[in-house]
């Protein structure tokens, strides 16, 4: 049975429908990411779960209980904000203990819990500092401890890493995932960064114009995107137009080259969508001209042009193929299984 259930959730601001018929079931202890571009409605969904926004229609239930009409301070959820939102007038320890204090927990029980929380986030000695004395990453960890201290039944994270430096971002996201698994707390994580979502989620909800396009595990989102939008938003996607010369064998012409995919295709013109890793260098295949080579460490990213269509793909550093020079002519093979084929208009 699922722990958190969102049923037919709708939200309109005035005449704008921000969230449309949103359905999601989250299992206990699951880490779910809401991923999408800004304005896709992901934050609104989170704020409805938190109790800051009332759904125009639909139902939210936790552990079988309907909480749709409950106010935020009655829901027992923890939330972390993009801007940290630590109370500036309180010390780190007071911030962490805030939820316990308003719940009337006596000081003698509060203090050990605060100490536990500070140890959990790895800042055991900073209890007496004020928020301004901490770095952004430390502040966000304190915010996490504050959210977790009252033992909430759910953790809501609203773009918690967006205000941080790249390096802190990666280490903090790993720490968040570790703590989440350690506590087994059901978590919803809102982000616009697909890499972040991929790295730490059990499942990802890709949102687009208020609608959940796909709800699936990270690998499935990447490898088997259910819509064109998901395919384009998650990862890099190369789009090529091809004329089908023989629908049965899948013989097609791309630019000036002809290749056979070995699978049946619709007749006429098709669009091929392919991830960078679907391409590999070969002696024959689609002719292309290299425009740019970018060294990324373990990987080498190559940009090329097939006639006028730009494509990008990756090579392993130190692999069998020699790294092509910019301006050189190459041939590419495509793995048919990694292709998304659509009839062109």
């Amino acid at each position: 049975m699922s722990f958190l259930e969102l049923q037919n959730l709708e939200k309109s601001f005035g005449d704008t429908r921000v969230v449309k018929d949103f359905n999601l079931n989250v299992a206990k202890g699951e880490f779910i990411s809401l991923l999408g571009p800004s304005g896709c409605g992901k934050t609104t969904v989170l704020r409805m779960v938190a109790g800051f926004e009332a759904p125009t229609s639909g139902r939210i239930s936790v552990d079988g209980k309907d909480i749709t009409r409950l106010r935020a301070n009655q829901r027992n959820v923890g939330m972390v904000f993009q801007s940290y939102a630590l109370f500036p007038n309180l010390t780190v320890a007071q911030n962490v203990g805030f939820g316990l204090k308003v719940a009337g927990v006596p000081k003698s029980e509060r203090n050990p819990r605060i100490a536990d929380m500070l140890a959990l986030i790895g800042l055991p000695d900073l209890g007496d500092r004020y928020p301004w004395q901490l770095s952004g990453g430390q502040q966000q960890r304190v915010a996490l401890a504050r959210a977790l201290a009252p033992k909430p039944q759910m953790l809501l994270l609203d773009e918690p890493l967006s205000a941080l430096d790249a390096k802190v971002r990666v280490s903090l996201r790993n720490q968040i995932r570790e703590i989440q698994q350690q506590l087994g707390i059901t978590t919803i994580f809102v982000t616009h960064d697909q890499e972040e979502a991929m790295a730490i989620s059990d499942r990802i909800v890709v949102m687009h114009q208020g609608v959940a396009d796909q709800i699936a595990a990270p690998q499935d989102i990447y490898n088997r995107p259910s819509t064109e939008f998901v395919a384009g938003f998650v990862g890099t996607l190369n789009r090529l137009t091809a004329d089908v010369l023989d629908p049965e064998t899948g013989h097609i012409r791309i630019g000036g080259s002809e290749i056979t995919l070995g699978q049946p295709l619709p007749a006429g013109r098709v669009t091929l969508s392919a991830r960078p890793e679907a391409f590999r260098l070969a002696a024959t295949g689609i002719a292309a001209q290299v425009t740019k080579v970018e060294f990324l460490g373990a990987l080498i990213s190559v940009a090329a042009q097939i006639d006028d269509t730009p494509v990008s793909f990756v090579l392993f550093n130190g692999g069998d193929d020699p790294v092509p020079e910019p301006g050189s002519r190459i041939h590419l093979q495509i793995a048919p299984s990694r292709l998304l084929i659509k009839q062109a208009a």
Partner: peptide, 13 residues
Amino acid sequence: KKEWREAAEVLGA
């Protein structure tokens, strides 16, 4: 900040 109010609210205040 609006977030202070929301953070307090969601913590049960």
